[in-house]
């Protein structure tokens, strides 16, 4: 993997991002899901289809995160899918909150902040303000999906 140290890319195309871009995780569609959303950015054609399967305890047991577009959205979608597995929706919301805070350059209180894992690599995108929206699209899909799931739950209750 060429790192091009003479190019001032701040590691934008570094090992972790390019690994998730080249070998995206959890891209197979799920036959059935509890949450399903699609988000699209008409300005660049970036697209993400997110599916989540929950168990009876409300934990995420399966994720499908299919994205089209640039390296940033594809890597984020892959990393997000990996990070979501095994979490409750409340933990997923906390992860979303922590990721957005990182992208704004804010530091969260250590004890309450969930582990971002590979997602930490995405903070380089802050150096490229016009590309931040690429990194946020999968999270928008997650938020929209969780919101409509909660609305659906509320209606059933």
């Amino acid at each position: 993997m060429p790192q091009l140290p003479d190019v001032p890319l701040h590691g934008l195309y570094g090992e972790s991002i390019m690994d998730h871009f080249r070998s995206p995780r959890h891209r197979s569609a799920l036959a059935s899901s509890d949450i399903e959303t699609e988000e699209f950015n008409p300005f660049c054609g970036d697209r993400v289809i997110l599916q989540i399967k929950l168990d009876d305890a409300g934990r995420i047991t399966q994720v499908s995160s299919r994205s089209e577009g640039c390296s940033i959205i594809q890597a984020t979608a892959s990393m997000m899918a990996e990070a979501l597995l095994g979490k409750s929706l409340a933990q997923a919301a906390a992860l979303d909150h922590a990721f957005r805070a990182m992208m704004r350059g804010e530091s969260l209180e250590q004890e309450s902040a969930p582990e971002l894992g590979d997602l930490v690599a995405m903070q380089v995108v802050r150096e490229y303000p016009v590309r931040i929206k690429c990194a946020l699209l999968p999270w928008l899909a997650l938020e929209v999906g969780m919101e409509s799931h909660q609305l659906g739950q509320a209606e059933r209750d």
Binding site: L9, C44, G69, C70, Y128
Partner: peptide, 9 residues
């Protein structure tokens, strides 16, 4: 390669 990546590089 997506055009955005071309543009950034």
């Amino acid at each position: 390669v997506h055009p955005h990546d071309i543009g950034t590089i």
